[in-house]
């Protein structure tokens, strides 16, 4: 068993009186793809936003690679090696594809005055070109993000996150709204990133076809509580999961 890269320990998040996430714990193993699924409003995105430090949990601990990050600001996550994508695209719309990805490499541009003022720091350009190649965005380098079609915008979100050179990649519904062909590309790309580059991925996704195909482990949330965890196969046959998704009758049928 390899070490856990990310540990979420007993995290609880309340919004006013509403408990969005309740005493939730999770371990993501290094070099695996871990999916977080559950019906709408189950608290998946809230958990995500806690890990990427956009929300502050009311209690609990988040540990990344042995370091407690529960109190760290969101802007330090990229530097730690945690990258995220956004459920509803958050691209830099008026900027080009290349610029979007270069901002992803922000933390690698170095801190010296010279590095701050360099237009194309050679240290990062090589990696950026590689990311562009790999995500198939090369023909669109100079296009404005807002002029791309939806599928490519989703890819750009991913490419920008990869430019961070993360150790942990948090993907919030990367396949939502994509066509089958595009999902297949995403599937190949993610698998390749994990198998050859040793990346660790935590993914929130509703597209079950993708979840079942790429995940090493699946955690199911409902009403802010973990109801099941295991391999895709185990989770698929878990009565509690079937009940959460389809209702009581289906579980007993």
């Amino acid at each position: 068993m390899r070490n856990p890269l990310l540990q979420v320990e007993n995290v609880t998040v309340r919004f006013g009186g509403l408990v969005a996430v309740n005493d939730f714990s999770l371990e993501v193993t290094q070099g695996t793809i871990h999916a977080l699924i559950g019906p709408n409003g189950a608290g998946k995105s809230t958990t995500f936003n806690c890990i990427s430090r956009f929300y502050q949990p009311n209690s609990g601990r988040i540990v990344f690679d042995g370091t407690d990050i529960t109190r760290s600001p969101a802007s330090e996550m990229a530097g730690c090696g945690i990258a995220r994508s956004f459920q509803n695209l958050e691209l830099f719309n008026e900027l080009t594809v290349l610029e979007n990805i270069m901002i992803g490499a922000h933390v690698h541009c170095g801190g010296s005055l010279r590095a701050w003022l360099q237009a194309k720091p050679p240290a990062v350009m090589h990696h950026i070109d590689e990311v562009i190649e790999r995500t198939g965005l090369a023909p669109y380098r100079k296009h404005k993000a807002r002029n791309l079609d939806f599928g490519h915008q989703k890819l750009l979100e991913l490419a920008r996150a990869l430019a961070i050179r993360p150790r942990l990649l948090l993907l919030d519904e990367p396949a939502a709204g994509l066509r089958n062909r595009e999902i297949a590309t995403l599937d190949r790309l993610l698998t390749d990133l994990v198998r050859t580059d040793g990346l660790t991925v935590l993914i929130v996704e509703h597209v079950m076809q993708l979840v079942m195909s790429i995940s090493d482990r699946v955690t199911v949330l409902n009403f802010g509580t973990k109801i099941a965890e295991g391999t895709p196969q185990q989770v698929r046959n878990d009565p509690a999961v079937i009940e959460a998704y389809l209702g009581k009758e289906a579980a007993h049928a």
């Binding site: 802007s75 530097g79 830099f92 719309n93 901002i103 541009c109």
Partner: peptide
């Protein structure tokens, strides 16, 4: 043209995304 300028524009275009990219 610099990293600083890119950070400015990132903040202008999307603050949440800029934060996630490590832009303070």
């Amino acid at each position: 043209r610099s990293r600083l300028g890119r950070a400015f524009r990132a903040v202008r275009e999307s603050e949440v995304a800029a934060l996630a990219m490590g832009v303070p």
